[in-house]
Design a protein around this nucleic acid. Structure first.
Length: 266
DNA sequence: CGAGATGTTCGGCT
DNA sequence: AAGCCGAACATCTC
């Protein structure tokens, strides 16, 4: 479910818990989402600690607690964060619950492709500091994009957009949106883009990320009218630009929607 | 009931 | 060696 804007929206759902102590951390021990973490260490470190900060970077979430404890969360395919009243009893898929005096912060994930990390230390954990620059940052330069695309050969441009080391936070629907706006066929080999096409892709990637964060990321609001987003899942959806019926096929292992008229193969 | 779902990772092939 | 692909992961919904 979540791409960068949805991830940011979910981060906000835990904001009411900032500055407040965690009375108790409840976890579904042994579940796949906790792979690699020591459950006792996590619950012991969070008990009595204050949630002091939260951040997102692409699809990654990081929560800082007093006493030098850090919780990282990746929401995978079906993860979400929400807050419930203090007396709420966590359900089957609420794998992590942080009980505070006036509410409970919950991580919910039925498919469990997501992941919870636990780290200790004064500084943010190593894995966090090493994350690549996000698409909306000044470090996401056209030169960086050009270099990365040139290294690929026959791999389709859609696969490049889904590569989290290049476009952190971009997922299946955002990739399709960016390609549609850039008028690029998703199957085009990444290394075959002209310099003008690369520039357009760079611009549209930044625009789609920025705009999604300002709509979905704030209140789960819809992206602007006219976006492919509104029609891409519909059976028999048509291109918002020219009304042509959308193509639908598997590209880079994922269902992909595009318009053959304004995203021509060449 | 079968298919597919807004994601990542691993193993094997070229 | 690096790039590429398919399979696997676990559950729910249409």
């Amino acid at each position: 479910m979540p791409e960068l804007a949805e991830v940011e929206f979910f981060r906000k759902q835990w904001e009411p818990g900032l500055g407040k102590r965690v009375q108790e951390a409840l976890i579904h021990e042994g579940k796949r989402v906790f792979r690699g973490v020591d459950p006792e260490a996590l619950t012991a470190a969070l008990k009595g600690a204050k949630l002091v900060d939260s951040q997102t970077r692409g699809k990654q979430l990081l929560f800082r607690f007093s006493g030098g404890a850090w919780i990282g969360i990746h929401l995978g395919m079906s993860g979400s964060l929400r807050r419930e009243a203090h007396d709420f009893t966590p359900g089957k898929h609420d794998h992590l619950a942080l009980v505070q005096a006036d509410g409970v912060l919950l991580y919910h994930d039925p498919r469990m492709f997501g992941r919870v990390r636990f780290d200790r230390g004064k500084q943010p954990p190593e894995w966090w500091s090493q994350l690549p620059p996000v698409v909306t940052s000044p470090e996401f330069t056209q030169a960086r994009l050009a270099e990365a695309l040139s290294r690929r050969k026959l791999g389709p441009i859609k696969a490049a957009l889904l590569d989290q080391s290049l476009f952190p936070g971009v997922g299946n629907w955002m990739a399709d949106e960016i390609l549609w706006r850039s008028r690029l066929d998703p199957r085009t080999p990444a290394a075959a883009l002209t310099s003008a096409e690369r520039t357009e892709l760079w611009k549209q990637a930044r625009l789609v990320c920025r705009t999604s964060l300002r709509t979905i990321g704030v209140d789960w609001g819809d992206p602007p009218p006219g976006w492919l987003f509104h029609v891409r899942w519909k059976k028999g959806g048509s291109c918002p630009r020219d009304g042509e019926s959308l193509q639908r096929a598997e590209v880079a292992g994922r269902t992909t929607a595009w318009c053959e008229r304004c995203q021509p193969a060449n």
